[in-house]
Design a protein around this nucleic acid. Sequence first.
DNA 1: ATGGCCTGCAACGCAGGA
Length: 255
Amino acid sequence: MKLATWNVNSLKVRLPQVLDFLAAQTPDVLCLQETKIEDDKFPFMEIIAAGYQAICCGQKAYNGVAILSRNQAADVVMGIDGYADPQKRVIVATVDGVRVICVYIPNGESVESAKYKYKLDWLGRLNNCLKLELAKYSRLAILGDYNIAPEDRDVHDPKLWEGKVLFSEPEKSAFKELVALGFCDSFRLFEQAEKSYSWWDYRTNGFKRGFGLRIDHILLSAELSKRCKSCSIDRDRRAHDRPSDHAPVMVEIEI
DNA sequence: ATGGCCTGCAACGCAGGA
């Protein structure tokens, strides 16, 4: 089973690239973030024509998540239970016996920002949600844009990023607390190339200069970790004409 | 280089991203 995640930074713009990704990688599940499209405008026809089903939780202009899957998605939940967040950042479903949580964790803007407080609060709510899901499902995967680089090796210049949003201690602690619930960062189960990142800034010509961060992650429960055979970043997609600023991340699990 | 771009919305500049 292949599970993938990709922050597409507008599904409308990136739809051809998403269809190309589906054809090239044939994932069983693809989690999308920053679709930036309302549900009634979601490109269901094109996705279905590609052999996939889709569930979505979107809004106008900002945020928005979706899960594309070859097989039927069951027990769908939009958002975090008991948290009336107007920002559409979470969609959950069971596919092929795996509980899939697609997350778009807030960016935070800067450590001084009100959005940073929202991010930390949001992470607390996600932590509670994962606790409950883990009690119900042993095969659990959380895929998405976490907007947190967990370790020095996930940052092109840790000195430069020290204390900054995406790499501040409270964010890294919150990430560790999620993992400590009983997950593993699937990317680190395997030997990886140095300077492996999933996001590069548009502005700094970041991709060409290797100015990147690893902020898109796939956390797996113990039950899935022991069956995980690979985790990779499809970094070549970032070199595409008119790319998303994020590259897809994918795991293969033997089920 | 204190800089650089991309997207959507609604206008011809802003918010937001990270």
